[in-house]
């Protein structure tokens, strides 16, 4: 099997910080003109994490692409909607309620969460639609948070919930809404405790932009992107398999597990290949084979030993 060597990105191709910051400043000013309050909180603050051996050394997807090509239906269904429509969203103050089958249920403030031992995690992200990115997240293992609330022995699953804030999330208003709110997701407890599973609070050296799930989101790199729920307000430990939004929307097409798997096609399209966003161009699309568990099989395949991955898609 041929080994893929990622092309090295030339230093000259990286947008200098002052240029993208000046764009950000312009956008911020423009947003402030439209929105009375809340525009300032959309500005990112620098954030640092320590390196991690879980990071890939593949070429990063340019920040411009990571922050302009998003699925975040709370802000609209077009890929450009989240970046365009999230200027009003105010991610601070924020808190995450952790409850359910735990010994010490409590609420975590964002000031506290941002002080968790943060790590840089450069992960592949594979969307169920057939595209992928490589994103430098900053976050901490979900297990570190779960440890603090002391899950009970009866807890088998973890469920997650996104904020509902129609006044700041235009996708949650109007008569034509593609999904039910709040957006909910879930993991098996062992998946949630896996060291690859993180709660991300930043990317590209800064706090999370609104369109990427500010101020805190889940990242489960071996599952399709929709599992990595954004703007989390509630985490509950439960005994039964929790409801998940896309499965509720279409159970035939989206399963609870939704592990990246080139051998199990989506009913309507193939999952064998993926298009790497930001690579190639108009006349040279960067298609590549999709890897089982998104390339994290060594770390996570044991979680599903003996399971029929076609039936448990």
């Amino acid at each position: 099997m041929p080994v893929y060597h990622p092309p090295r990105i030339a230093a000259s191709e990286i947008t200098p910080r002052e240029i993208y910051m000046s764009r950000r400043k312009f956008m911020g000013t423009a947003a402030a003109g439209l929105v009375v309050a809340g525009a300032s909180s959309a500005l990112a603050a620098p954030l640092a994490g320590s390196p991690s051996t879980f990071s890939t050394d593949e070429t990063l997807t340019p920040k411009e692409a990571v922050t302009s090509y998003n699925n975040f239906y709370e802000f609209g269904t077009a890929k450009s909607d989240p970046a365009q429509n999230s200027g009003q969203f105010d991610p601070l103050p924020w808190s995450v309620k952790v409850d359910g089958l735990v010994g010490k249920p409590r609420e975590f403030g964002m000031d506290e969460l941002i002080k968790m031992p943060l790590e840089d995690r450069v992960y592949r992200l594979r969307c169920v639609e057939g595209w992928s990115m490589v994103i430098p997240w900053i976050g901490f293992p979900l297990a570190a948070l779960l440890d603090q609330v002391e899950p009970l022995g009866s807890a088998k699953y973890v469920s997650f919930e996104t904020i509902v804030r129609p006044e700041q999330m235009p996708g949650q208003t109007g008569f034509f809404q593609p999904l039910e709110w709040p957006y909910v997701e879930g993991l098996r407890l062992d998946e949630a405790r896996h060291p690859l599973t993180i709660l991300a609070v930043g990317l590209y050296g800064e706090t999370l932009p609104n369109q990427n799930g500010a101020p805190i989101r889940l990242v489960v790199p071996w599952k399709y992107g929709f599992k990595s729920i954004k703007s989390i307000v509630k985490i509950s430990l439960v005994e039964e398999q929790p409801q998940t939004t896309w499965k509720n929307s279409n159970a035939r097409e989206y399963g609870f597990y939704s592990n990246v798997n080139p051998e199990v096609d989506h009913p309507r399209w193939s999952q064998a290949t993926e298009q790497r966003i930001g690579e190639g161009g108009f006349f040279s699309v960067a298609n590549r084979p999709t890897l089982k568990f998104n390339g994290y099989a060594d770390e996570v395949a044991s979680l599903y030993e003996g399971m029929d991955l076609k039936a448990n898609f």
């Binding site: 302009s68 090509y69 890929k79 450009s80 966003i277 161009g281 108009f282």
Partner: peptide
């Protein structure tokens, strides 16, 4: 637009 980078980061699909 696609040929000059005006169709976003996934120009082929958009086009």
């Amino acid at each position: 637009q696609g040929a000059t980078g005006g169709l976003g980061v996934n120009p082929v699909k958009t086009f």
